[in-house]
């Protein structure tokens, strides 16, 4: 028998996450895949993996993340929501009385302040991606360690070294400097975590009132040393929810359930798109000096979405509720 589920998809810069949630808002299946710069492919692949895990009747679909428009057109989603809202919904679901959400993803980091389950304030990193997952990834690769082991190794440190965390370029040169002085690997990694936390609190969380319970989520929350660094810096206990890595997808599947309950029926395009030939075409429009790059996305020859123009003349987004 087909199981009834809601599908949540979070297409981020680094990872694309899938969540299947049952009608009781419990996660049935989750996937954490690397986007690898090919969101369409990874969406098809994810759906395929999900069909391998069981038979599903999808009651509703929600998408979020920086690739939400693309995913929304492809899946004909019922809800397309920004990451802030999606993450807040999920955090409230996991920790109902949460007042602060710290989220660090691949390319961005955010802080969300909630009061009485309502977003009261939020901030995202602005001009610099220092202190996000990609940087940790890079450094792990440079030091030839698995990103999964990063936290474990860092936690063995007895004396974290101080690393300049204002900017990734400076942080890297400072790390190399410390490494050439002979500082041990765990001390450098732990120092890097502390620098990232410092940077986050100074830039992203600047001026925000951080009250408990504090929830730390996003891909970087897998790094235990980051959690410890946050707790030390804040002097507050910080909890990492069970599904910390797929919170965006979880949030948006909850939203999809709410939306479908309201409107009655899902617009989901179905699992058939797994084998469809999805093609994208890019061209530069020369009608004005803006030279916008227009992207056209077709599903088996029929145009499903088109965007990229500043003037809006090419815009076609599949008929979906936003």
């Amino acid at each position: 028998m087909k199981r009834k589920v809601y599908l949540g998809v979070d297409v981020g810069s680094v990872s694309t996450n899938f969540v299947l949630m049952n009608e009781a808002d419990e996660i049935v299946e989750k996937l954490y895949l690397r986007t690898l710069g090919q969101p369409i492919k990874v969406i098809q692949e994810g759906l395929k993996l999900l069909t391998n895990l069981g038979e599903w009747e999808v009651l509703g679909v929600g998408v979020t993340g920086s690739g939400r428009q693309l995913a929304g057109s492809l899946l004909r989603a019922d809800v397309i929501k920004n990451e802030i809202t999606a993450h807040s919904v999920a955090a409230c679901h996991e920790v109902p009385d949460v007042q602060t959400v710290l989220e660090i993803g691949g390319q961005d980091s955010k802080i969300i302040i909630l009061r009485n389950q309502v977003v009261a304030d939020f901030a995202m990193n602005t001009v610099c991606a220092a202190g996000t997952g990609s940087f940790l990834d890079q450094q792990a690769a440079r030091l030839n360690i698995n990103i999964e082991d990063f936290g474990k190794i860092a936690l063995t440190s007895t004396n974290p070294v101080r690393i300049a965390g204002r900017c990734t370029v400076f942080a890297e040169s400072d790390m190399i400097h410390k490494q050439q002085l002979g500082v041990s690997l765990p001390d450098i990694l732990a120092g890097l975590c502390e620098a990232m936390v410092r940077n986050y609190l100074n830039n992203v969380a600047k001026g925000k009132e951080i009250l408990p319970p504090v929830v730390f989520q996003g891909g970087v929350a897998a790094n235990k040393a980051m959690k410890v660094a946050f707790e030390q810096a804040l002097g507050l206990e910080t909890s990492v929810p069970r599904h910390f890595d797929v919170m965006g997808a979880l949030g948006v599947s909850i939203l999809a359930r709410e939306q479908v309950t309201k409107k009655g029926k899902t617009t989901f395009s179905g699992f058939e798109i797994i084998d469809n030939k999805i093609t994208t075409q890019t061209f530069e429009c020369h009608d004005c000096p803006n030279h916008c790059e227009i992207v056209r996305i077709s599903d088996q020859e029929s145009l499903i979405a088109c965007w990229g123009s500043r003037c809006g003349k090419f815009e076609k987004v599949a008929n979906i509720a936003i």
Binding site: E83, I84, T85, V118, A120, D121, M124
Partner: peptide, 18 residues
Amino acid sequence: EAGFQTRLEAFVDLLERK
């Protein structure tokens, strides 16, 4: 543009909820 739009959408959500 993407980050800009995300912030606007999130801000509008916040106000609606409020």
